[in-house]
C-alpha cells in the first residue's frame, strides 16, 4: 500500500548515492532498513496467532484513533510548525463538547465538535502562521488554557452523554470498527489535498522554507492557519470516537495521545523540520507501531516493554530518515 504513492526507497537512495558519493554510505543505511523490515516480518510470522484475520483487525483498530489525530499532526509538521503539544487537551475538551451536545442528535453534535476542534486549533495556527510564534510554547500555553477552561466549565467532573446517538460511532460494519473506515477515507482525502491542491503544494513550500515562501508572495499565514484548522477537525474526529467509546469524558480523556500521535508521524518517516511527509507515511507509522506492540503483546511482554519498543522504533526511524535525506537537502 505504501509503495503506491511514496517515492520508492531504493530510487531515493540511489539518487542520494550518485549525487553525493562522499562520506556517508547509503548502502549501509539501505541494509539496516532491509534488515529491520525483515526482522519485524520474521518476528510477526513466527509469533503465534499473529497472522490471523482477527489479529489484523485488532491492529488496525488500535491504530485508527491515534492515526486520525496523527493525520492532523502530519499537516502541522509538513507546514513547518513542528508539533502541537495540545492534542490530548484538545481531544478531551472536544470530547466533552461532543457528549454534552448529544441531545441535539448525532450529526449536529459531530458538526459542533468538528467546528469546535477546528476553531480552537486554527486560532493557534493563525498565531503561528501570521506572527511566527513558537508552536511549542504556544501549544503548551494552549494546553493550559484548554484544560483550565474545560475544568472551569465542567466543574472538574466527567461529562456523560445527553443522548444515545453517539453509539453509532461504536458500530463495527463488516466486523471492523467504524473508525478504521474513517481513517482510510481520511488518509485518501488528506493525501489528495496534499498532492493535488494548491493549498497542499503551498504547505510543502511553507514548511520547506518559510522566508522563501513569504518572499514569493505566498499566503504563509493563511496556509498555516488552514493546515491547523484541518488538523483541529481531525483531532475532533478522534475525540468523537474516543468519547463515544468511553461514553463519558473528562479533562483526561486525551491520555497520552499527544505523544502517541507524534510518535506515529515520526515513525512514518515525516521529518519534524517540515517540507516533507505524507498522509500515507503517517498511516504506515501508526500501523507499524500498532503491529509491533501487537507482536510484543502476543509474545507476552509487559506494557512497559511495548512502550519502550515504541520509543526505540521512533528513534530508529528518526535517525535513519535523517541520515538518508541529509545529503539531498543539504
Amino acid at each position: 500500500m505504501t509503495t503506491l504513492t511514496e517515492p520508492p526507497v531504493a530510487t531515493a537512495a540511489a539518487e542520494h548515492g550518485s549525487r553525493e558519493p562522499g562520506r556517508r554510505k547509503p548502502t549501509a543505511s539501505d541494509l539496516v532498513v532491509v534488515l529491520a523490515v525483515l526482522a519485524v516480518v520474521a518476528l510477526g510470522l513466527t509469533t503465534d496467532r499473529f497472522v490471523t484475520v482477527a489479529n489484523a483487525k485488532a491492529i488496525v483498530t488500535s491504530a485508527s484513533l491515534v492515526g486520525i489525530a496523527a493525520l492532523g499532526l502530519t499537516l502541522v509538521m509538513i507546514g513547518g510548525s513542528a508539533v502541537s503539544l495540545a492534542i490530548s487537551q484538545t481531544v478531551a475538551a472536544v470530547g466533552m463538547i461532543f457528549l454534552s451536545a448529544q441531545s441535539l442528535g448525532l450529526v449536529p453534535a459531530l458538526v459542533l465538535a468538528i467546528v469546535g476542534g477546528a476553531a480552537i486549533t486554527a486560532l493557534q495556527g493563525a498565531v503561528v502562521g501570521y506572527a511566527a510564534a513558537n508552536p511549542v510554547v504556544l501549544t503548551i500555553a494552549a494546553s493550559f488554557a484548554i484544560t483550565g477552561i474545560a475544568t472551569g466549565v465542567s466543574g472538574g467532573s466527567s461529562v456523560s452523554a445527553s443522548g444515545r446517538g453517539y453509539d453509532h460511532l461504536n458500530a463495527t460494519p463488516g466486523g471492523l470498527a467504524l473508525s478504521v473506515y474513517v481513517l482510510i477515507a481520511l488518509v485518501v482525502v488528506v493525501e489528495w489535498v496534499l498532492r493535488r491542491t494548491r493549498f497542499g503544494r503551498t504547505l510543502y513550500l511553507v514548511g520547506e522554507n518559510r522566508p522563501a515562501a513569504r518572499a514569493a508572495g505566498m499566503a504563509v499565514g493563511r496556509t498555516t492557519a488552514v493546515a491547523w484548522a484541518i488538523a483541529g477537525a481531525l483531532f475532533a474526529v478522534t475525540a468523537a470516537f474516543t468519547a463515544a467509546f468511553n461514553t463519558s469524558a473528562n479533562v483526561n480523556l486525551g491520555g497520552t495521545l499527544t505523544f502517541d500521535a507524534i510518535a506515529a508521524v515520526l515513525a512514518g518517516g515525516t521529518p519534524i523540520s517540515g517540507g516533507r511527509g505524507s498522509a500515507v507515511r503517517t498511516l504506515a507509522g501508526a500501523v507499524l507501531i500498532a503491529a509491533v506492540s501487537d507482536i510484543l503483546l502476543l509474545r507476552g511482554y509487559s506494557t512497559g516493554v511495548q512502550v519502550m519498543v515504541k520509543g526505540l522504533i521512533v528513534l530508529f526511524v528518526v535517525v535513519i530518515v535523517h541520515v538518508r535525506t541529509k545529503g539531498r537537502h543539504a
Binding site: F259, I262, S302, M308, K310, G311, L315
Partner: peptide, 20 residues
C-alpha cells in the same frame, strides 16, 4: 539531528523501560 524528535523517542522509551 534536531534534538526534539530524538529526545521525544528517548522519553517514550525511558518511560517504557521504567515501567518494565
Amino acid at each position: 539531528i534536531p534534538s526534539m524528535p530524538v529526545t521525544l523517542a528517548t522519553y517514550i522509551a525511558l518511560l517504557g523501560l521504567t515501567s518494565s
